[in-house]
Design a protein around this nucleic acid. Structure first.
Length: 561
RNA sequence: GUCCUGAUAGCUCAGCUGGAUAGAGCAAUGCCCUUCUAAGGCAUCGGUCGGGAGUUCGAAUCUCUUUCAGGACGCCA
């Protein structure tokens, strides 16, 4: 049952002579007291040459469907209230039948999406910056799967490139094996920061860094050994952070280094297609006039970011035959991905259009970009630990006898951090603010978790008797809440189309708010068994959608808290 | 300098393809736990939607212009 579609069809049947289906708009009114659905008649007024009110009245008189409870015409709007009992009964039955499958669709059946996300840089701390890619990517993966897509998740580790040349140089110059072994990531970060500090005074160091990367690419044994060591330490440390986050399953961890032996054929093909051009000793591909060319090979012969990404794109197309390839990478890399697509397009691959840069806003500090080079990046692990500690304090104070409180504290603390990152529009920059992240009240992850835990405790009173819908009285709170559930499938589709988890987060917050209004203004359990059961069934189906929404967002749902 | 984003309440942000009195959360103030989890609910306070012009029945939303902030801009990723 698609109410909007039904309304559209009904109106179309009344007016069909003079207009097309697309001319009929169905809106969700801002003020729910106005209507369940509103049809503005202003644009129809031009086509039909009648006043909006007359059109509304004309539709109203011919509208005849038991699904509508009442129809009014006000200020040029046709306001429709649907038959609440019918819709509620429909939603309850649907959710009881489909359970967590509710909201799924099959738009992606037999289609594969390859997703490149998280992708932290080896030998650097896992910072809050990479949290965004991880969390947004994970949510989009779940949303896509909900839409029937096969998703291949790739953690494209930043484990290759000039930065390792710099790091190896810094380690050999200033590093100490024992010190690094004791506390690898922090020490490597110090070395990395020191390198850039020194390089500011002595720019020749940049050349040293490049030279070491070139050595690495040429297979220099000592450099490779150091690199492998750094990589292993990093992965060890990252695993801890991923486990805390609860996002730790990727189909592939093939990072940039994986494509080391897969770039030559790409370069050859570019050459064969006469796209390669020598410029200042480097190989470039010219794109459009108003865009800098893509640098394929440095003048010393070493490869670059885009070279590896080209090789990766071919590898993925060949191995996964993707419908879409999503790159969940920050805003600041827009130019890189525009260039990547253009190069593929110039090579004649029409699937370049399926490559999509899912960009997101940066995490700012004092209004500016956080920079690892300056040592400013905040470690995600520390933030998570702090959030979990705070959750523990809440638990000690409010539910001291809670079992497995450590695990619940982890779920809550992490839920707060994840939700904080997902609640805003994907492309907006976020100011890093520990105070906001550590807020457990209001529009937060813990608010949603708390709402669901509350429902869970109510459900102990359920008796599983059949509901007599004829005896049901539906008030404003009940109707708003159930009607909200009705729009969940649309929200999933919108989140997929926009590649934006915030569509879902906003919905889930709304739903939790509607539930808490319902809960706060209504006594759920009373002497009337039929009414009590009805309210409990509503609680039950709300919980199904809340939990499914949280699962998609990557937030765990403790049963008690 | 060129290009791209953005600017909505004291703060953080919503506002779907232009549509009915611009909405939440936080902060502030006042209520509500002898009744289902107060991480909650209710109420009050708070806005010339950065400025200016235009498009039209109608603009926070579209166009132009201007100011401010951030980002990107060949050998980093």
């Amino acid at each position: 049952m698609n109410l909007k579609q039904i309304i559209k069809d009904d109106i179309y049947n009344i007016l069909s002579d003079s207009l097309s289906r697309e001319d009929i708009l169905i809106e969700n009114p801002k003020d729910r007291k106005m209507a369940d659905y509103a049809v503005p008649c202003f644009s129809l007024s031009k086509i039909l040459r009648k006043s909006p009110n007359d059109i509304g009245l004309m539709i109203k008189e011919n509208l005849n469907n038991e699904l509508y409870e009442s129809v009014d015409v006000i200020n040029g709007y046709l306001n429709i209230f649907v038959n609440k009992k019918k819709v509620i009964e429909y939603i309850i039955n649907k959710l009881k039948e489909e359970k967590e499958e509710y909201g799924s669709n099959n738009m992606g059946n037999n289609k594969t999406i390859v997703m490149d996300y998280s992708s932290p840089n080896i030998a650097k701390p896992f910072g809050v910056g990479h949290l965004r890619s991880t969390v947004i990517g994970n949510a989009i993966k779940n949303i896509s799967e909900k839409c029937g897509y096969e998703v291949v998740s790739i953690n494209h580790l930043g484990d290759w490139g000039t930065q390792f040349g710099k790091l190896i140089y810094a380690y050999k110059e200033w590093g100490n094996e024992d010190v690094v072994r004791n506390n690898p990531i922090d020490e490597l970060k110090k070395l990395y920061v020191k390198f850039h500090k020194e390089a500011e005074l002595n720019p020749e160091l940049e050349d040293e860094g490049r030279a070491y990367f070139k050595k690495l690419e040429d297979g220099d044994e000592e450099s490779l050994k150091i690199w492998e060591w750094f990589k292993a330490e990093s992965l060890k440390e990252f695993a801890g952070t991923y486990n805390l986050l609860g996002i730790n399953k990727f189909d592939s961890y093939n990072g940039e280094a994986f494509y080391n032996d897969k770039m030559e054929p790409v370069i050859r093909e570019l050459d064969e297609k006469n796209l390669l051009e020598l410029s200042d000793g480097a190989y470039i591909v010219r794109l459009t006039d108003d865009m800098p060319p893509a640098l394929i090979k440095r003048s010393d012969g070493a490869t670059l970011y885009i070279t590896r990404d080209l090789a990766a794109a071919f590898y993925r197309k060949k191995n996964y035959n993707f419908e879409e390839a999503l790159y969940v990478v920050g805003n600041e890399q827009t130019l890189h991905f525009t260039q990547l697509k253009l190069v593929l397009d110039k090579m004649g691959y029409e699937w370049s259009k399926d490559i999509k840069h899912i960009s997101f806003g940066m995490i700012l500090q004092d209004g500016k970009k956080m920079s690892t080079r300056q040592g400013k990046n905040v470690k995600l692990h520390d933030v998570l630990v702090e959030a979990i500690e705070l959750a523990n304090e809440y638990i000690k104070e409010r539910s001291p006898e809670l079992e497995n409180s450590n695990e619940v504290a982890r779920q809550i603390g992490v839920g707060a951090v994840i939700f904080n990152d997902l609640k805003n529009y994907r492309t907006s920059d976020i100011e890093f603010n520990l105070k906001d992240i550590l807020k457990f009240e209001g529009e937060t992850g813990p608010y949603i978790q708390y709402t669901n835990a509350r429902i869970n405790s109510l459900l102990n009173h359920k008796q599983n008797v059949n509901i007599d819908y004829n005896k049901i009285i539906i008030n404003e709170y009940t109707w708003n809440l159930v009607f909200k559930l009705y729009s969940f499938p649309e929200i999933i589709i919108r989140a997929k189309e926009k590649y934006d988890p915030s569509e879902l987060s906003k919905y889930i917050i709304d739903l939790a708010q509607d539930f808490n209004k319902f809960y706060g203004n209504e006594k759920i359990i009373d002497d009337d068994i039929n009414a009590t059961e009805f309210r409990l069934v509503i609680c039950e189906i709300v919980s199904i959608v809340l939990e499914e929404g949280m699962r998609i967002l990557g937030i765990e749902a403790p049963k008690q808290m």
